[in-house]
């Protein structure tokens, strides 16, 4: 009874809403996670070679960094709108937009991470007979991991948050529920979806932090950890 009332009186917090629309919430959350994962994964796959190219040729670094900074400046609603004629009203619009945003931070952080590798470590690896590929994946990449992971965390958290804007074309995960709730003035739906969205961002951040700890066991042995802002 009391549960029914909170739907009728349109309250912010409503257990009945969560009970009756559980499936809807799960579907939206899954779409949200899917879009975020796809965007961040593709972003990493594109950013890594771009960063390597930018490191190899200084002439590439300027345009790559400049272009990604310009992309970062474009507001999300405009970015998605500009991609609509290219992909139609499909999920590809949202994923592509989010990938383009992620490049800015990922490329910069991978470059910064690779630049922070001590020259001695490279020399030692070369002296041990490491070729360029083994040097990159065996020595440079592990040492660049802290900067890379810091960038990945920033990117992931802002991707989770930006996915909501995809609601404009119907692929916004939890953003779809916020968008619907906005039109029907459904407070419980808007608040629940917003809270889930923030929770997703926090969870993703913590998961990546844990992953970073697991991937860089040597950092824990160090006395002081520098907290990346």
């Amino acid at each position: 009874m009391a549960g029914q009332n909170c739907l009728i009186t349109n309250e912010w917090i409503c257990g009945e809403y969560v009970r009756t629309r559980g499936q809807e919430l799960t579907d939206a959350t899954l779409q949200h996670v899917g879009i975020t994962l796809a965007s961040v994964a593709i972003g990493l796959l594109v950013a890594f070679p771009l960063a390597l190219l930018a490191r190899r040729w200084r002439g590439v670094a300027g345009p790559v960094l400049g272009l990604t900074t310009i992309l970062y400046t474009v507001p999300s609603l405009a970015m998605f709108s500009l991609l609509v004629p290219v992909f139609g009203l499909s999920v590809a619009v949202v994923v592509t937009g989010l990938v383009l945003y992620s490049l800015t931070i990922l490329v910069r952080n991978i470059l910064a991470g690779l630049a922070s590798v001590p020259e001695e470590a490279r020399e030692a690896a070369r002296g041990m007979g490491y070729g360029p590929v083994r040097l990159l994946f065996g020595v440079e990449l592990p040492l660049a991991l802290p900067a890379l992971m810091a960038g990945l965390r920033i990117t992931t958290v802002s991707t989770v948050s930006l996915t909501t804007v995809g609601a404009i074309i119907g692929y916004g995960g939890l953003g779809n529920l916020i968008y619907e709730g906005m039109h029907s003035f459904f407070k419980a739906q808007v608040l629940t979806a917003s809270a889930l969205c923030v929770a997703l961002a926090v969870l993703a951040d913590l998961a990546l932090l844990l992953l970073q700890r697991l991937l860089t066991p040597w950092a824990r042995a160090g006395k002081r950890k520098k907290v990346a802002a």
Binding site: V157, V160, S161, T164, V165
Partner: peptide
Amino acid sequence: AVNISNAGRAVPTFAVLVLLLL
């Protein structure tokens, strides 16, 4: 200063706009 900046990143702008509207 750091936490405010992180919170600003995690909270979706769109959600805040709609929450304030309602």
